[in-house]
Amino acid sequence: MNIFRLAGDLSHLLAIILLLIKIWKTRSCAGISGKSQILFAIVYVSRYLDLVTTFISVYNTFMKLVFISTSVATIYLMYVKFKATYDHNHDSFRIEFLLVPCFLLALLINNAFTPLEILWTFSIYLEAVAILPQLFLVSKTGEAESITSHYLFALGSYRALYLLNWIYRYYAEGHYDLIAIFAGAIQTILYCDFFYLYITKVLKGKKLQLPA
């Protein structure tokens, strides 16, 4: 554990908490992509199957359980409790266009051809692109509430901080995982346009609104 990794995990946790607060306080999931939330739930479940096979640390187990349970809770809030506020019409990204290629790529490029390892690899590839339905929704509506922007900023920062963690670990421990590094770089790049808007608009007190 190093400072970048811890900051990344805390940023990830903050993102999830911000999202739950937004939905709970406003009693609405308007502006949030249910498709992205479903993809994240698939990511956590397929990645954290090692909960039952490998014990790494109390911290590791605790965080995995938190990510799985909060992601299920988010889906419950969106599709059951506050279903009436869910923006079906704008959330029209076809997730099979992400799920199928990620799974095929995981079958082709993986660390080991075993069920758990393929699912882990699939989850890494899928996480890299899981935010696309959300970014697509923001581009369709042309705006995002400020708390939704904070959520996206924290979520994007998490993998960017992991990139620093991987650089640190490569030099400090000689540890590296090319699949995670490659996918993490793609994941971070996808947020760059949003980061730019966040820094130039939201941090200056303006609403995140895309140019018409």
Binding site: Y176, D177, I179, A180
Partner: peptide, 10 residues
Amino acid sequence: FSDEDDHDEL
């Protein structure tokens, strides 16, 4: 692709 079997990251 990796030097370790266990994935210790989240």
